[in-house]
Structure formats: structure tokens, C-alpha cells
Design a protein around this nucleic acid. Structure first.
Length: 482
DNA sequence: GATTAGGATCTGG
DNA sequence: CCAGATCCTAATC
């Protein structure tokens, strides 16, 4: 096990006594999360339709998943909050807007109002959703594409339909269409057909699954898949069927964002085949964490990406009996992502990109995808506080503390050796340097340069080597270690 | 070979 | 101006 029981408490925010670098992560108060109303499956669908929720809500663990087996690690209640700090990194490109997806700031008074919503959200925010930016779906999909049901599902009270819960999906789609058209090339631009050459089996399957409609008393919407109309038993309405490909494209778009977002968080390639052993472990732990699956020793996945990709579902289940399917299904999505045209700029160098696929989503591909969520955070009106975490202005020592504050994610790259004395060890210098370079938009960053910057801290009294100098072990000086 | 230390210079905000 | 980023030499592990 790579992680030590050195979990950071609330006071692990940046030392406030430090001059000119006040940087307190946004601490979302519980009150900001709205009342849970919508069934998670509906959220899932809406999410696939592009109805993103604010990252902070996505990132909070469902508080009521009591059936979840206790994690082998101490609960790090702030972990997800801090993860949000990494959620999006700023893009150097000032033109990185949301492409064809309209952006709507939700509540201007909210401290998170600067965050974009990719689609108007007509439903109340649901804090219990499992969806996280790193993933396309809040619920893992089985390889066949159907939603895997977990105990947490049953935690919801039986969904008595409330007026505000009755969501007209068709209306949602129309609204989205209108907004999309109005933001795209001024007005009344005929909807340009989005090319999607591939048959996204997983996504299609999800979209075809209309069981949630019945389950939650939703107005059924007939989905047309090619020429085959998906009949809904109770659906007598002659609704204009939304274009399944359009919906699919939106879902794919969301998947792209989610995968890229996770790439940013973990500093890994979008292509699992390129993952190192450390990358694999980071991905596994991240995935388990965010699907609220019981964690397993990362050593169980002591393999590189190619080996991981080669694992069968059974082999996943052997390594992670309770969550193997989740991992397997998620990896399927990532594997599918490999074949898409999206890839973060950071990886274009060594991304094989076997077939140069024409951009399936032209306007979206123009933007610096990797950092979209961050750019969203800075572009919408009110900005949050001051030294916003995720900013390129972050100091190296702050950044290192951020990484140290997320041992579940970055514990294989950097970890505390002696938290109280601020002693930490860089386990994976390449990875830490890569993350630092990504944060600072310095693709050429390496550990040589990063360590040089650390050594500049010696004079400044921010960091030092430990008494007995050990390789890759540094120590924060007071008060920086607080 | 990787890491460490530190000088010199450049650069972006 | 500051905080790195970059490049470098030399020493050490």
C-alpha cells in the first residue's frame, strides 16, 4: 500500500500567515447543495444529454451511501473538495469557450457561479449523484451497456412524482437545441449534422434504455435508432423523436470532457495503452474512489496500461471482487475514447493516433479540451475569491501541498513521510513534474527543473532537505508545513 | 543514471 | 520585480 495514514485535515489549507500567497481552496458549505429530488438515473441521462452539473456537486460523495463498505483508508472528508481544486486547469488559449454547447451560469450568488453549465438545468441539483467530472457516467455500465445497479440505488426513497420532478425530456432537448442554435453562428443556423462514424455501443445502449422513464414516471420519449423506433409500452404520444445521433453526440461530448478532465486530474494520457504502472494505479484508485467502490490495494493492479487493457472482466473481478465490473466498464469507455479524435494537447506528441479521424465535433474540438472546466471557471462573470486554486499562479510549494492533500489520487506520486514535520517524498518525480508542468502550462517541465525550483526555496526558507538527506525527500519549513 | 546543489540567465505575469 | 523556467557544471548517491 502506497498511502500512509497521513490524511490532511481542514487546517491543511495554505498557511494563512504566509505573505502574498493566500490561497484557500473553495470550501463548499453543505448548504450550497440543493435538495435532492431527481433520481440518479435521470441525472445520468441528463448528463449524457449534456446537462452537466457544477463540479463541486459532482465531486461530493453521496452522503447517504450507508451500505458502502468502509474504505480501507480513513475517510478523507475533504478529499473530494480538494480534488475539485484540480478539476480544471486553465488553458492558455483565451478562445477556449464551450464550443457549440451553451453555457449558463446557474445562481449568480453562488460562489460557484463562475462555473459553467453546459446546458440549462431545469432540475434541482442532486448532491447524491455519483457523477464526477472524470467519468462519463455516474453509474458504471456493464460491457453490454446496461446500467449496473448498486445498493446505493435503493437508498433513494421510492420516487413519488413531484410536479417539479416531472421532467419533459423532449422539452429539454428542444431547449437545448434552441440554445445551441442561437449560440452557434448567430441565429438560425441549420443544425449541421455532426458526423459520428462510429457505433458507440455503450452510449447507444444507455440512450436506448428508457426504463428509467417508467420507473420515475417520466414522459416517455421515443428514441429512434436508425430506422428502428424504440417503442415505449405506454408511450402513445406522437412526439417528434429527438435525433438519437444528436443525443449521442452530446453524450460523446460529455464523455470527452470527462475523460479529459480525469486526464488532467491524474496527469495521465487519455490512452490507457500509454499508461505506466503508476498511471494504472492512479486511475484505478481514482475510479474506485469516485464510484464509491471499495478500494483495493493498488498492488493488485501492478501493471501498465497495456496489461490493464488486456484484462478480462473476470480478471478485474478477481482483483476487485466488488468493483471489478465498474473498473472494467469504465475502462471500456476509455478504450472507446482512444478511438475518438479527442486527445489533450499534452499528449499529442506521443499519442499514436492510428487513424487521423476527422473531428467529430468540430466546434468542440477547437477548444483546448483539457482545460475546459477551468476556463469555464474563469470566464463567467463573478469570480471566486482570490487566489483560486487551479490557477497557474499557484506557487510550487502550494501545488505540492495540493498533491499531498490528495493521497488517494496522487499518493503514488508524492506522499507525506512525516506530515507533522512537513516531510514528504516524491515517489514519482516524472509524474509530479508532469503535473506541475501541466498546471503551469509548461509542457517541457521535468523534474530537473522542478527540483531546481524547489532548491530555490532553500534560501527562502520555504523548504529544505531533511536532516539526513534522502533522495527525493524534502521538508517544508515553518509555517509552510502547517 | 538519477539526483542534488547552485550559478547564470531568461521569461511571463 | 518576482517566481519560476531553462540551461548549465559539478558533485554525489
Amino acid at each position: 500500500m502506497n498511502w500512509e495514514n497521513s490524511f490532511v485535515e481542514e487546517t491543511d489549507a495554505m498557511p494563512q500567515t504566509v505573505p502574498r500567497s493566500g490561497c484557500s481552496p473553495p470550501s463548499a458549505s453543505q448548504g450550497e447543495r440543493a435538495v435532492p429530488t431527481s433520481p440518479a438515473d435521470l441525472q445520468h441521462l441528463l448528463r449524457l444529454l449534456g446537462a452537466s452539473s457544477p463540479p463541486e456537486s459532482m465531486l461530493h460523495s453521496p452522503p447517504n451511501l450507508h451500505t458502502k463498505p468502509p474504505p480501507p483508508y480513513p475517510e478523507d472528508n475533504n478529499f473530494l473538495d480538494r480534488l475539485y481544486d484540480f478539476e480544471g486547469y486553465p488553458t492558455p488559449s483565451p478562445s477556449s469557450d464551450e464550443g457549440s454547447i451553451p453555457t449558463v451560469a446557474l445562481q449568480p450568488s453562488s460562489p460557484y457561479s463562475s462555473l459553467h453549465y453546459t446546458t440549462p438545468v431545469y432540475i434541482k441539483e442532486e448532491p447524491n449523484r455519483l457523477s464526477v467530472p472524470g467519468f462519463a457516467s455516474p453509474y458504471p455500465l456493464s460491457p453490454s451497456g446496461s446500467c449496473v445497479s448498486y445498493g446505493s440505488h435503493n437508498q433513494y426513497p421510492s420516487p413519488t412524482p413531484q410536479p417539479e420532478e416531472y421532467i419533459d425530456i423532449e422539452q429539454l432537448l428542444k431547449e437545448n437545441q434552441i440554445l445551441q442554435d442561437s449560440t452557434q453562428h448567430s441565429y438560425i443556423t441549420p443544425k449541421t449534422e455532426i458526423e459520428e462514424p462510429r457505433d458507440h455501443i455503450l452510449l447507444r445502449s444507455v440512450l436506448e434504455d428508457t426504463t428509467f422513464q417508467k420507473r420515475f414516471n417520466l414522459r416517455p420519449v421515443p428514441l429512434e435508432l436508425g430506422n428502428v423506433k424504440m417503442e415505449e409500452s405506454s408511450g402513445g404520444d406522437d412526439l417528434v423523436a429527438p435525433d438519437i445521433d444528436r443525443v449521442l453526440s452530446m453524450a460523446i461530448e460529455q464523455s470527452k470532457r470527462d475523460v479529459d478532465s480525469t486526464c488532467t486530474v491524474l496527469g495521465i494520457s487519455p490512452d490507457p495503452m500509454l499508461w505506466s504502472t503508476a498511471d494504472v494505479k492512479a486511475w484505478v484508485m481514482f475510479t474506485l474512489q469516485h464510484f464509491n467502490q471499495p478500494l483495493v490495494p493498488s498492488e493488485y493492479f501492478n501493471m501498465d496500461g497495456a496489461a490493464l487493457v488486456a484484462l478480462t472482466e473476470e480478471e478485474f473481478n478477481q482483483r476487485a471482487p466488488q468493483s471489478g465490473s465498474t473498473l472494467y466498464a469504465q475502462l471500456e469507455i476509455w478504450k472507446a475514447a482512444r478511438h475518438e479524435s479527442w486527445k489533450t494537447s499534452q499528449w499529442t506528441d506521443h499519442q499514436p493516433s492510428p487513424t487521423p479521424v476527422p473531428a467529430a465535433l468540430p466546434s468542440a474540438d477547437d477548444m483546448s479540451e483539457d482545460e475546459d472546466s477551468e476556463s469555464a471557471g474563469t470566464s463567467a462573470g463573478t469570480t471566486v475569491g482570490k487566489a483560486k486554486t487551479g490557477s497557474t499562479h499557484i506557487h510550487l510549494w502550494q501545488f505540492l501541498k495540493e498533491l499531498l492533500a490528495s493521497p488517494h489520487i496522487h499518493g503514488s506520486a508524492i506522499r507525506w513521510l512525516d506530515r507533522s514535520n512537513g516531510v514528504f517524498k516524491i515517489e514519482d518525480s516524472v509524474r509530479v513534474a508532469r503535473l506541475w508542468g501541466k498546471r503551469k502550462n509548461r509542457p517541457a517541465m521535468n523534474y530537473d527543473k522542478l527540483s531546481r525550483s524547489i532548491r530555490q526555496y532553500y534560501k527562502k526558507g520555504i523548504m529544505k532537505k531533511t536532516e539526513r538527506s534522502q533522495r527525493l525527500v524534502y521538508q517544508f519549513c515553518h509555517p509552510y508545513c502547517l
